[in-house]
Computed example of a mutant assay.
Amino acid sequence: MSGKPVLHYANSRGRMEPIRWLLAAAGVEFEEKFIEKKEDLQKLKSVPMVEIDGMKMVQTRAILNYIAGKYNLYGKDLKERALIDMYVEGLADLYELVMMNIIQPADKKEEHLANALDKAANRYFPVFEKVLKDHGQDFLVGNKLSRADVSLLETILVVEECKPDALAKFPVLQSFKARISNIPNIKKFLQPGSQRKPRLQEKDLPKLMAIFY
Score class of each variant (00 low, 15 high):
A82I: 14
M99I: 13
Q104Y: 11
Y124I: 15
K79L: 14
N143A: 02
S12Q: 11
Q42L: 11
V158G: 06
F212D: 01
S146N: 00
M1N: 09
G54C: 00
E32C: 12
V172Q: 09
Q42V: 09
D85F: 02
L167A: 02
Y74P: 02
L152Y: 03
W21Y: 09
P184L: 04
A26W: 04
K169C: 08
E32I: 02
L7W: 11
R20W: 11
E160W: 09
R61M: 14
R13H: 10
E129T: 08
A116E: 02
V58Y: 02
K130S: 12
A24S: 13
A210P: 04
E129Y: 06
A68E: 05
R179G: 08
D53A: 10
K33T: 12
V6N: 06
A114D: 07
I211A: 07
E161R: 11
Y66W: 07
T60W: 00
I211C: 07
M86G: 13
A114F: 01
V141W: 02
A178V: 10
F212M: 03
I35N: 09
A92D: 15
A82R: 00
R196K: 13
E110K: 13
M86A: 15
H135I: 06
N122M: 00
N72V: 08
Q59M: 07
Q174T: 03
P171W: 04
P171L: 05
D77M: 04
D204N: 12
G69T: 01
A26P: 09
M100N: 14
D53E: 15
H135Q: 08
A106N: 14
V159K: 12
P126G: 10
M1K: 10
L208N: 03
V159G: 11
P164N: 13
D107M: 09
E110Q: 11
L152H: 06
R61Y: 09
Y95W: 01
Y95I: 00
L113C: 04
Y87E: 04
M86P: 03
G75V: 09
E154H: 06
K45S: 10
R199M: 15
H8K: 03
V58E: 05
K169D: 12
L22E: 05
V127K: 13
N11C: 07
I156W: 00
F176M: 06
E202F: 11
E89R: 06
H112Y: 15
V6P: 02
G3E: 14
S181Q: 04
Y71I: 12
L23K: 03
E32Y: 08
G54R: 01
V172H: 09
M100W: 13
H8D: 04
F212C: 05
Y95T: 06
Y124C: 05
E29P: 05
Y66A: 10
E96F: 15
A168L: 11
V47E: 00
V127D: 08
P126I: 02
D40F: 03
D93R: 07
E51H: 04
S151W: 00
D40T: 05
I52D: 05
K133F: 06
F189E: 02
I102F: 15
A26S: 14
S46T: 10
I186Y: 07
S146T: 15
T155K: 12
L22H: 01
Q201P: 05
V28L: 05
I102V: 12
L190F: 09
L83D: 13
G193I: 10
R13N: 08
F176K: 07
A82H: 01
L167P: 00
V50E: 00
